[in-house]
Design a protein around this nucleic acid. Sequence first.
DNA 1: AAAAATACGCAAATCATTTGCGAGTACACT
DNA 2: AGTGTACTCGCAAATGATTTGCGTATTTTT
Lengths: 123, 123
Amino acid sequence: MKKDIIFNVIKNSPNSLTAEEIYNDVSQDIDVNLSTVYRTLNNLVEKDLVTKVVRQDKIAYYELANNEHKHYLICDNCNNAYSTDMCDLDKIARKIKKETGFNITSHTLEFHGICPECLKNVK
Amino acid sequence: MKKDIIFNVIKNSPNSLTAEEIYNDVSQDIDVNLSTVYRTLNNLVEKDLVTKVVRQDKIAYYELANNEHKHYLICDNCNNAYSTDMCDLDKIARKIKKETGFNITSHTLEFHGICPECLKNVK
DNA sequence: AAAAATACGCAAATCATTTGCGAGTACACT
DNA sequence: AGTGTACTCGCAAATGATTTGCGTATTTTT
């Protein structure tokens, strides 16, 4: 099944991927249609196997539904995304829950700026 | 100029608005085209008068470029957004800056869950 | 007032993603 | 093996937010 192959690409990727990136990767091995990729992705997200996050560029990024919570530093110059595991948000989330009664189940956090590499070149 | 009228709608709104919401609001007073709203919005964002944030629903939300940093609690049930000013992120941002050399200039944070109102009804 | 610069409307284009539909494939039960 | 039911896919067309080209107003500058 193509679902397994698509899921494997996500599993083996250290960073989150767009549907198109996944499509390009999978296409090297098998014949697959973009809509199949999208359908499969939605399927995996529904089953909580994959996490989908929409970034400021309006593109959805997919990664293994994880356990290890990550956030991204996105360079506004080169557009690369660096991940960080720094996240004190659970603490904040708990606080908000307590103070507002809002039952928080997830959050997304995106930092924007210029990465060290680009900083060098710009200077 | 229509720009002023559009800007005023944003100024007078306590929460962030979509282009369509702004369009609907402005349309009550004057004759305006949706593309004008979008063009104006982009203009205001460029001039740092307005902040644009793309949420998980892939829709752009606009609000007064602010000083007071806000984040949103978005209810996955009723889709209402509640704002909170809780944000220890500047601290985290500084830490990341120090440890990675990444020059962070902005960030977006979005909490998802179920609001107290919906929690009542679901139970 | 003429020239140069903006602002705007309208229709068409974009782009990521979704969907309808029809054909192919797999599994289950008789 | 035969039939039925349920997925899985490909393909083309649809979606929906946003952008863009272009021609026409309206404003600003000189």
